[in-house]
Write a protein that binds this DNA or RNA. Structure first.
Lengths: 225, 225
DNA sequence: GCGTTGTAGTCAATAGTGTTCACTAAATCC
DNA sequence: GGATTTAGTGAACACTATTGACTACAACGC
């Protein structure tokens, strides 16, 4: 009779682990939004006490970093280098975009952090492999890496933030808000209002990615000769 | 004798205003880092009570938005459109970069938010004016705006975040951390480690900006004919 | 089988957070 | 100069991350 379904028994010993906790954190963020990552909610999601997680992470920040690693892991899952280095860079960029779209709250929280973890390193290596295949070496490859990687990560991260803020507040008309003030003071914005609110962000990202790849192509051909 | 220098008197009536508060917030972030934006610290910085700010802002989030507007204002201060639209876009991009560099904590906190405020609108209009001058119209201009603006804002915002995290933790070697594990597993990253840790981020941004402008140039010439 | 021991999970406490609400006093209006 | 409005105040609340003492469970030696 003691310890029925109501009063929970102490959690068994091996129940928690970094991986289990990170998955719970990810699920929590997916379902309840970006503010859900607290020790209290994490504890109840794991059916554990509020502070149980501290046995596996020394701070909230460490959880965020682990979450970033998890996003890297999910993004890269099953990735293999392509014959054409351009395809490799496209693939990697769209994997980041897809992860940001599927886990916006988590991506918005964690994607901007550098983890120094193994999956981040895998991603770095994958990009550098592609650039090597393109013919870029040394310092040239280093800078080109940053041009590509910072752009992709920053844009995907911002996309995730946009997604969560969109689901929070209503998606109002944006530029139309200013019309009452004075439509002639900002004529270009006023005229473009309709187009701006109808922007296809996926298409924007596509152009940004192709932009970099094209640039790398011309650089590679210049370096290759 | 009553109310000497120790026990502060109540603050005079018109002392606080949105502008004064935002400036205090910016100063606080500049001097004490990204965690300094609290009502308590803001209150003591203004020599006011903890909750005084609530008479001018309904929530912390609203302060952040106002801070974003202030950053827009500072960025655009004194801006005028150039003859050459390319120069306009360059100018605007580097203004954002400069603001992010000068106020990293504030930029890291606020730059990723859209404000729907007057200075944000000014920035949007300035970019669209340049694109118009380039010959881009309608939907083409809308998408191109997003390609340019999202890239610049996302990258500058991430740059600000990098600056604050650099001043927090020590600037360790980055990729070298993995060497112990296995230098051959990630050969490209291992070989590029030296170059990656020596990346000139300003140069990276320069390339990213020129990238977009070049792309817009070819699009404009295609659309113009 | 059975004590010992390390440690994963728990509980209570603390300092600090955003936010609310009743209160108070300073400007302003008549 | 009295009434009214409202900007600034102070106490309170629910919630946050984090700490440190405690406890029971699994594994180990015997």
């Amino acid at each position: 009779m003691a310890g029925s379904s109501v009063s929970r028994r102490r959690l068994a010993r091996g129940s928690l682990s970094r991986q289990v906790i990170v998955e719970a954190a990810l699920g929590l963020l997916d379902e309840e939004g970006p503010d859900a990552l607290t020790f209290a909610r994490l504890g109840s999601a794991l059916d554990a006490s509020t502070t149980a997680v501290y046995r596996h992470f020394t701070s909230r920040d460490e959880i965020v970093v682990a979450l970033a690693e998890e996003l890297d892991r999910l993004s890269l899952h099953g990735y293999e280098a392509h014959e054409d280095w351009r395809e490799s860079l496209r693939d990697l960029a769209w994997r980041a975009w897809r992860t940001a779209s599927e886990h916006p709250a988590a991506a918005s929280t964690a994607m901007h952090r550098t983890t120094r973890g193994i999956h981040e390193l895998r991603a770095v290596d994958a990009v550098l492999e592609a650039l090597h295949r393109a013919g870029l070496r040394g310092e040239d490859a280093g800078t080109s890496y940053a041009v590509y990687a910072h752009l992709v990560l920053a844009v995907c991260s911002q996309h995730a933030t946009r997604l969560v803020s969109m689901s929070a507040e209503g998606v109002e008309g944006w530029v139309q808000v200013y019309h009452p003030t004075d439509p002639t003071a900002y004529p270009y914005a006023a005229r473009a209002a309709a187009y701006l609110s109808a922007i296809d962000h996926t298409e924007v990202f596509r152009r940004q990615v192709e932009l970099v790849i094209t640039d790398l192509e011309t650089r590679a051909s210049r370096a290759g000769v």
